[in-house]
């Protein structure tokens, strides 16, 4: 599909895909860990009347990781639901522009998210804000994952935009996105 002149993009795509694959894998392990910890907590609390006070808080922090780690992989695999039903209303000649505009908006959103996540992070770092709950942790020790996640989300959106831009548009080649929630 891609012309030889876009080798740089292919290289970039490969790097992004690899990082997303690792991120997704870590997120998977974290979901397993959350499940295991909560089951242990329930069992211990029921049979030994000794709840593990740190389980709730650490599950929450792990979910923050799951979210930000999986954000870009989900974009890559088209798991963020989009709605293709209006496509027939758009003349075929405009459809590439339509899609590019949609992708540009995703890039804009990702950039805004990244910007404000960085701002937020700088703030919790400077104030050394603590979590509330049963365990006290400096939030900056955990929320750095937000910057990573938002950054990868932005880069993945950019790569998708560029690939779509550089590939000749074939209105029949597209598959309907699969929603799953």
């Amino acid at each position: 599909m891609e012309g030889p002149s876009h080798g740089w993009l292919t290289g970039l795509e490969r790097v992004v895909a690899r990082i997303n694959r690792v991120s997704a894998f870590i997120a998977c392990i974290l979901v397993l860990a959350i499940m295991t910890l909560i089951v242990i907590d329930v069992v211990v609390r029921y049979f030994a009347a000794a709840p593990l006070e740190w389980v709730q808080d650490s599950s929450c922090f792990m979910l923050v990781f799951v979210f930000f780690l999986a954000l870009a992989p989900a974009l890559e695999s088209g798991s963020h639901i989009e709605i293709d039903l209006f496509d027939p209303l758009i003349p075929a000649s405009l459809r590439k522009a339509q899609r590019l505009l949609g992708k540009a908006i995703t890039i804009t959103f990702a950039a805004i998210l990244l910007w404000f996540v960085i701002k937020y992070y700088r703030d919790i770092y400077e104030t050394d804000e603590l979590s509330f709950g049963m365990i006290f942790v400096s939030l900056w020790k955990i929320y750095w994952i937000g910057i990573f996640g938002a950054f990868m989300f932005l880069v993945t959106a950019l790569v998708q935009f560029l690939r779509f831009f550089l590939t000749p548009y074939d209105p029949h080649a597209e598959e309907a996105p699969v929603a799953s929630h």
Binding site: V31, I34, M35, I38, Q56, S59, C60, F61, L63, V64, V66, F67, F68, I112, L113, F116, V117, K119, Y120, Y143, G146, H181
Partner: peptide, 25 residues
């Protein structure tokens, strides 16, 4: 707009939401 970042953390760090991946799994 900073509320956007704040929400992205506070929603994903909520214990009730932890149930979502568990039921999906």
């Amino acid at each position: 707009l900073s509320q956007l970042a704040s929400l992205s953390f506070s929603i994903s760090s909520s214990f009730i939401i932890v149930v979502v991946p568990l039921f999906i799994f």
